[in-house]
Design a binder for these strands. Structure first.
Length: 282
DNA sequence: CGCCAGGTGGCCC
DNA sequence: GGGCCACATGGC
């Protein structure tokens, strides 16, 4: 087993935050299927023990180069974020393969994490070269994807694969807006999915994907539960959270989806919900 | 049975 | 810009 210094990292929080789907618990660690191989990883304090792929791949995938202290220092100025940041300390935004990330989040539309996981694992098993997810050139036809129960997403996936042939996604670069605009040319990719891919695959940490959970959290925490358009939320998030908005999004998503406990000291979810929704504290 | 789920695309005003 | 609908499938 090899090791890597991994301070300010939580393997579990990172994997369980719903960014990546092809992993499973294995004994005291996790088995993670990547393009480069099957990675087994477990955490021992600040040390990440791993085998299966090389250390550079591990460090890159888990984004161990992200400056977590700086990110937290900046975001913790917002009192609404402190509880979630503390609770999910060490959660990192991954650096995923763009095509797999694109396929996974096209699949995510009107779905849920268990089902997305099933769909993505199915696609890998059916069309990929294990453990690698299928390249765009290997993806199935719309019909074959419908057979895997992808539903209306099957057409999007097969057509997106055609557009992504020849390494088109490897050539995407530039600021968030241009990456997002290029991604939205693909069928099945609107603003939300484009921001997910920009964040989870292209390291655009200022991306702020707004899904049903984040929308609910943002409305409650910053808009007095009023009805607000996603455009307004995005604008607000950009101003409020700045260059690390993506990290704010991911802890808000995770907190809202699991437990909904924003309090820094871990009160019962029902109570903290009440506290968080109240305009004033106490 | 009916409703809703990590949304998007098409069409309306 | 915003509102409404269909889109497959699965879980409750």
């Amino acid at each position: 087993m090899e090791t890597l210094a991994a301070p300010r990292f939580s393997l579990q929080s990172t994997l369980e935050s719903g960014q990546y789907f092809r992993w499973t618990r294995r004994g005291d660690g996790f088995e993670i299927h990547l393009r480069q191989g099957v990675l087994f990883a477990r955490q021992n304090g600040d040390v990440l023990e791993f085998e299966g792929v090389d250390g550079a791949t591990v460090g890159r995938f888990f984004a161990l180069d992200h400056d977590l202290p700086a990110i937290h220092a900046e975001l913790e100025r917002d009192p609404h974020l402190r509880g979630a940041l503390r609770r999910y300390r060490g959660l990192r935004i991954l650096r995923q393969d763009p095509w797999e990330c694109m396929a996974a989040f096209i699949t995510s539309a009107v779905s849920n994490i268990p089902r997305i996981t099933r769909n993505v694992v199915d696609m890998a098993a059916r069309f990929g070269t294990p453990p690698a997810f299928p390249r765009p050139e290997q993806m199935g036809s719309e019909r074959e994807l419908r057979d895997l129960k992808l539903g209306f997403r099957a057409r999007y996936l097969s057509q997106a694969a055609l557009l992504a042939r020849g390494g088109a996604l490897d050539r995407l670069d530039g600021p968030l807006e241009s990456v997002r605009q290029a991604l939205m040319e693909y069928p099945g990719i609107g603003m939300k999915v484009a921001e997910c891919i920009a964040l989870f695959a292209y390291g655009r940490l200022d991306a702020f994907p707004i899904d049903t959970w984040v929308r609910k959290a943002m409305r409650r925490l910053y808009f007095r539960n009023r009805r607000v358009s996603d455009g307004k939320i995005r604008e607000f998030a950009a101003r409020r959270f700045g260059r690390y908005a993506g990290y704010a999004q991911q802890v808000l998503f995770t907190a809202e989806r699991t437990g909904r406990d924003y309090s820094p000291d871990g009160r019962p979810a029902s109570l903290s919900l009440t506290l968080a929704s109240a305009p004033s504290r106490r």
